[in-house]
Design a protein around this nucleic acid. Structure first.
Length: 676
DNA sequence: TAACCATGCAAACCA
DNA sequence: GGTTTGCATGGTTAT
């Protein structure tokens, strides 16, 4: 895993260098000239056809005149013969009624062939939509025509850079190999000349199909505009930026030729469409949340649900509207799950967060906070590429965690082109990355201090969208727990030997440990942040049904309690996924507080926990919910009872384990109770 | 010496 | 009368 992470990091570094060196490929952008689209213009179709044919003729003429290379950047994304969008009459500014123009403009950069870009490993894809969150936040005034013109016309690379920096600041672009376009659109990088030659051959080969392709693509686009005229705004279309080389690679990856281009177009349009829908839903959710002041309501409403389903190697092109087409043909249709009716998810249905390591198929949903909404869609395509890579920066997930988890990709290969289509490029410069990293660290540490407060807002209920525990790859706090019931218990506490080396390491310590992940029924978990552990005392496992929690950890990691009545807190049993409705509260005690977890009797009983066992609390960094795990310490009952019945709590070592606020000690109780 | 926390125990609550 | 709730006490550890 480390090597994989390192590779990802290296790839990212290389890419950053390339970007810093200004190796910009042509950036295909479209810009809006007017203000509105008139998708209903009856002349759209015919005009589109005419312009496409004209474009194709001009393209052929340029090729005949040997202008291919010089004019390369002017080629449309569709192998030069698909008309550039600005020339589609229905979108053209020259049109009287339709005043929006979608244009694929190119930067004045150098070669934009796939090979060239691949050689610089900078063939990243930028698909940006203004309705992506974050951008919206920052550029909402784009609704202003004047400002919009200025922004929309900025087809310069720097705009992309800014956007990328913005993205990077949100942690979702960082430094994973999945951002390495070469891994997404693998192109031969051996010889640029060879590549050009090959490219030209392809051109000739496809020349005869170009006309048909143009028409088909035009019709597809036209149909799409018609079907989405009410849901897709010009802004949505305008904000697409694609590197031409990426498009070529993507199309090739999608089957090449006409089919590939067709699929690519569909993917792009589907993405724009869905992204827009997501934006709209966000607005609706925001309106709803404004009407409700109860945090739990917001949690339940899931103001920005993004559900993803990444099935290696399949990319899905979900479409919330069954009447609208999506592209599936290049992919395994078996992975195409229907989106939930109520979910406008750009990625479609995903289930409930179940990780299925067997098929490399991870289902997850998350609800990015507004601060990260920019990735509400794109990140969902990009950051779920690995089943081990699912941390999103939400309120309970510091960005740094997400960043870290991107390195924790588990080496899962990503093959879906569509994923890369929406993959935001990494920030442009190393400097920017450094700043971003520093910012991430600040955010992370800041988050740790405010985490409990946020948890209050998220309430303490299990997020229905995220039901299974997953292991979190937080640096310095990485634990990997089994979640399967152990044979020794009808419930789910982990039964471990006190002699187990893993237990000699405190969960608070940096570690990467895994309990018998290879055993049947055991599965890796992630996204769990260790909060605290408590060696259970007699009073904890008694019939009082309350467990005293270590004060410092409780105050650090659990929600701040205003009233001593505390708050209800839902604890999901990691092993059984059962949710225990407990209460987290405190007692005044000697000018201080004494924190307790109440209503624990059932949990203790269900897990068969006894004195000397311990519980571990985690928080799910994705959902913000709390997880609990009972860990049974294997000890011969007879020996234990004989030794010191009812006296264990007086064992200084044991006491220290629970009272060690820093949690830096090992688990003395385990060691102490070990009969070895 | 202060803070933490295990637990004893009395008051309140309930059947 | 049993159970639950809440507080106080005192042992232990950290500073």
């Amino acid at each position: 895993m480390n090597s994989s992470m390192q590779l990802d990091r290296d790839a990212y570094e290389r890419e950053m260098e390339d970007e810093a060196n200004g190796r910009d490929d042509a950036i295909l952008t479209h810009e809006r000239v007017g203000s509105d689209l008139d998708y209903t213009n009856s002349n759209i179709g015919s005009d589109m056809m005419k312009m496409m044919l004209k474009e194709r003729e001009e393209s052929e003429e340029r090729r005949r005149k040997g202008m291919w290379v010089e004019d390369d950047n002017e080629r449309s994304i569709f192998y030069g013969d698909f008309p550039s969008l600005p020339e589609i009459p229905c979108l053209s500014s020259s049109s009287t009624s339709s005043s929006s123009m979608v244009k694929y403009s190119s930067s004045s950069s150098s070669s934009s062939t796939c090979s060239a870009s691949s050689s610089s490993t900078s063939s990243w894809t930028v698909v940006r939509a203004e309705n992506e969150d974050g951008v919206v936040e920052n550029h909402q005034n784009r609704e202003d025509p004047g400002i919009e013109t200025a922004i929309a016309a900025s087809d310069q690379p720097m705009e992309c850079m800014d956007v990328l920096e913005e993205l990077g600041g949100m942690d979702l672009l960082d430094s994973s190999g999945i951002w390495d376009p070469s891994s997404l659109f693998p192109c031969d990088t051996d010889d640029e000349e060879q590549q050009n030659h090959h490219h030209q051959e392809l051109e000739q080969k496809n020349q005869e199909q170009d006309q048909v392709l143009s028409e088909d693509l035009a019709m597809v686009f036209f149909e799409w505009l018609k079907s989405n005229k009410e849901s897709i705004s010009p802004e949505d279309l305008r904000s697409i930026k694609l590197k031409r080389s990426t498009i070529e690679c993507a199309a090739r990856r999608l089957g090449g030729g006409k089919e590939g281009m067709m699929q690519l177009l569909k993917l792009i349009l589907a993405w724009v469409q869905n992204n827009h829908l997501q934006k709209r839903r966000k607005r609706e959710e925001d309106m709803q949340s404004m009407t409700s002041s109860y945090p739990f309501h917001q949690q339940q409403q899931n103001p920005f649900p993004v559900q993803v389903s990444i099935s290696n190697p399949v990319f899905q092109t979900p479409n919330p509207d069954p009447n609208q087409w999506v592209s599936h043909s290049p992919f395994d249709p078996t992975f195409s799950q229907p989106p939930p009716p109520a979910s406008p998810s750009i990625m479609g249905y995903v289930g409930d967060g179940v990780f299925s390591p067997g098929n490399n198929h991870f289902h997850c949903s998350y609800s990015p906070p507004p601060d990260y909404q920019m990735f509400g869609s794109s990140s969902s395509w990009s950051t779920h590429l690995s089943p081990y890579n699912t941390t999103f920066p939400n309120t309970s997930s510091p960005p740094f965690l997400g960043f870290a988890n991107k390195y924790n990709s588990g080496g899962v290969q990503v093959h879906g082109v569509g994923e890369s289509l929406v993959k935001m490029a990494p920030s442009a410069t190393k400097e920017a990355r450094k700043k971003r990293m520093a910012r991430q660290r600040r955010i992370y540490y800041h988050h740790r201090h405010q985490n409990h407060h946020q948890h209050q807002h998220h309430h303490l209920s299990a997020n229905p969208n995220c039901t299974n525990a997953t292991q979190q790859a937080e640096p310095g706090n990485w634990v990997m727990w089994s979640s399967a019931p152990t044979p020794s218990s009808s419930s789910s506490p982990t039964l471990i030997s006190p002699d187990a080396p893993s237990l000699r390491t405190d969960p608070m310590q940096p570690q990467q440990r895994q309990f018998s992940s290879g055993r049947q029924g055991w599965k890796p978990e992630k996204n769990l942040r260790f909060l605290l552990q408590k060696v259970l005392k007699q009073s904890d496992v008694g019939n009082l049904g309350r467990i005293v929690l270590p004060k410092k950890e409780a105050e650090t990691h659990l929600p701040e309690l205003e009233a001593r009545d505390g708050i209800p807190i839902a604890m999901e049993d990691i092993g059984t996924s059962r949710v225990w409705n407990m209460r987290y509260r405190f007692w005044p005690n000697n000018k201080s507080r004494m924190y307790l977890l109440e209503n624990t009797a059932d949990f203790v009983r269900s897990n068969g926990l006894q004195e000397g066992d311990f519980i571990v609390l985690y928080s799910d960094t994705k959902c913000g919910k709390y997880m609990i795990r009972g860990v049974k310490v294997r000890k011969p009952e007879s020996k234990q009872e004989i030794r010191n019945p009812g006296k264990m709590q007086r064992n200084p070592s044991i006491a220290s384990s629970s009272s060690n606020a820093d949690g830096n000690s090992s688990s003395p109780s385990i060691l102490q109770t070990s009969p070895a």
